[in-house]
Each structure stands twice: as structure tokens, then as C-alpha cells.
């Protein structure tokens, strides 16, 4: 076959990611962010490494040294996950690392809960679902994992969720945010029905929608809709609600980029 000379390739394409790759390795970057406390450090590091058993071992050691299990959720597990989230946001580590760290962190939270009768202070609940008629749920699974990793309680309704079931969950759990994902143009129409039924009941909360065929123009057609382009936007939207309230126009101003 024909071929290009090595020196000709740069005129045809540019690997911007190669050109811009940071010198520091992910491990080195993580090391700079870990807390220095000798009991917390191994827990945070084990979360970054996604090692569930090491996280529990670290928690046991901290509890044995006098730390309260309930405090370790915020003071160790969330701190470790914060390191991971920052590295992901900075483009230093990739999504699978976050997912494995989230698994390790959630396992750690369950362990802490099992060691105490105290109940952790909730940050807020988010209800997640995949539109009725749609079974494509990997996007929703990523959204749910990232939200949990950020400390939110997630009610995961699963996929192919009937409209009325979504409404019931919102009534019952009083979330700060509802998320919906869809891959197909014909299933995402359910978002509008959910929007209308929520408003009929006087329930006004941000409804973050995204996924395959979903676009900003469609989501902006219904009153509660806030478009999320990336799975990680769900966390940013939830954080924005906690920080500045649930005004949908404000959220749209921040997250509607097109």
C-alpha cells in the first residue's frame, strides 16, 4: 500500500493529547494530594488505588487508634475520593480508575456504618433513571457512581422506568435533583411527560437529562430540564444546587454551553 513519510504526518493530523501530556505521573500527582495524617493517608491511598480490602484494613487501624467510624466517612473516605475526583477533573486519571475507587469507597462506607449505630449526615439525594422504553443504562450507571463518589445518596431506579414510578420516587425521596438518560429519540420523549407530571403536582426541581440522542435543544423545551453533556456534569449540577440553590435558569446559564 501507499504510505506517508514520518515527517509528513504532522501536516495531516496533530495528537494534541500527546503534545500536552503532563510530565507528572498520576501516582506522583496523587501523592501530592493525600492528607498527611498517618492514619488517614493509607485509606486515601487505597481508595485511589481501588483496593477495597486495603481500605477496610486502613479503617480498622484508624478505629483501633481511636477514630470514630462515622467521622472516617467524611474525614478519610471522602477525602480519598476527593483526590480521585480532582485528578479526574484535571485530566490526569481516567474513568475506570474513578469507578474502581468509587467501589472501594462505597465498600468502606458500608464498613464504617457496620461499626456504629450513628447515621451519617446526608449531603442530599439524587434520583437517577433511564427513560421508559430504553434499556441502555451504562451512562446512568456512570452518573450514579460519580454521584455516590461525590457523597450524594442515590436512588437508582434502573432502566426502562415508567413515568409514574419516577414521579413516585421524587415524591417519596424529595431529591435535590432528578436525572434521566436515554439513547433513543423516541424514548427521550418520556422526559417531557415526567416534567409535565411533576409540574402538575407542584414539584419544581431540576431535571438533568443527557445521553445518546438527547441534546440541549430538546431538554430546553421543558421547564425543569437542564442539559448535561457529560456524565460528570450530574455531579457539577448537584454541587451547584447545594451551593447556589435550584434556580433552573441559573443552572441552564451555567450548563447549557451551546
Amino acid at each position: 500500500m501507499l504510505d506517508l513519510k514520518l515527517e509528513d504526518i504532522d501536516g495531516i493530523l496533530v495528537r494534541y493529547n500527546v503534545a500536552l501530556e503532563k510530565e507528572m505521573t498520576p501516582d506522583e500527582a496523587a501523592e501530592e494530594l493525600y492528607p498527611k495524617d498517618e492514619l488517614i493517608y493509607p485509606i486515601a491511598k487505597s481508595i485511589y488505588e481501588g483496593e477495597e480490602e486495603d481500605v477496610v484494613d486502613g479503617l480498622k487501624a484508624a478505629i483501633a487508634a481511636g477514630k470514630k467510624p462515622i467521622d472516617l466517612i467524611n474525614d478519610a473516605l471522602m477525602i480519598g475520593m476527593g483526590v480521585v475526583s480532582k485528578l479526574y477533573d484535571d485530566g490526569i486519571i481516567f474513568l475506570p480508575n474513578v469507578m474502581m475507587s468509587a467501589d472501594a469507597m462505597l465498600n468502606g462506607i458500608e464498613f464504617c456504618k457496620s461499626q456504629t449505630t450513628e447515621v451519617p449526615e446526608p449531603k442530599g439525594t439524587v434520583v437517577c433513571h433511564v427513560a421508559e422504553g430504553d434499556v441502555h443504562d451504562i451512562g446512568k450507571n456512570i452518573v450514579a457512581a460519580l454521584l455516590r463518589a461525590a457523597g450524594y445518596d442515590v436512588t437508582d431506579l434502573g432502566r426502562d422506568v415508567p413515568v409514574d414510578e419516577v414521579i413516585e420516587a421524587v415524591v417519596k425521596d424529595k431529591p435535590i435533583l432528578l436525572t434521566g438518560t436515554a439513547l433513543m429519540t423516541t424514548t427521550m420523549y418520556a422526559f417531557k411527560e415526567i416534567n409535565d407530571k411533576l409540574l402538575e403536582k407542584g414539584l419544581k426541581l431540576p431535571f438533568a437529562c443527557g445521553g445518546g440522542a438527547v441534546n440541549q435543544d430538546f431538554v430546553a423545551q421543558y421547564d425543569l430540564g437542564v442539559y448535561g453533556e457529560e456524565a460528570s456534569d450530574a455531579v457539577k449540577i448537584a454541587d451547584a444546587i447545594l451551593a447556589s440553590g435550584n434556580d433552573i435558569e441559573k443552572l441552564r446559564a451555567e450548563f447549557h454551553k451551546h
Binding site: 495528537r15 493529547n17 486519571i93 481516567f94 474513568l95 475506570p96 451504562i138
Partner: peptide
């Protein structure tokens, strides 16, 4: 294709 879409563009950081 799920893998390809998660991997995304050159600058995306979701999957190698």
C-alpha cells in the same frame, strides 16, 4: 462501540 464512545476524542479522559 460503547468502548469507542466512552473513549471519545483525543482529549477525552474516560477510557484509553
Amino acid at each position: 462501540n460503547t468502548a469507542m464512545f466512552i473513549a471519545g476524542g483525543l482529549l477525552d479522559k474516560n477510557l484509553a
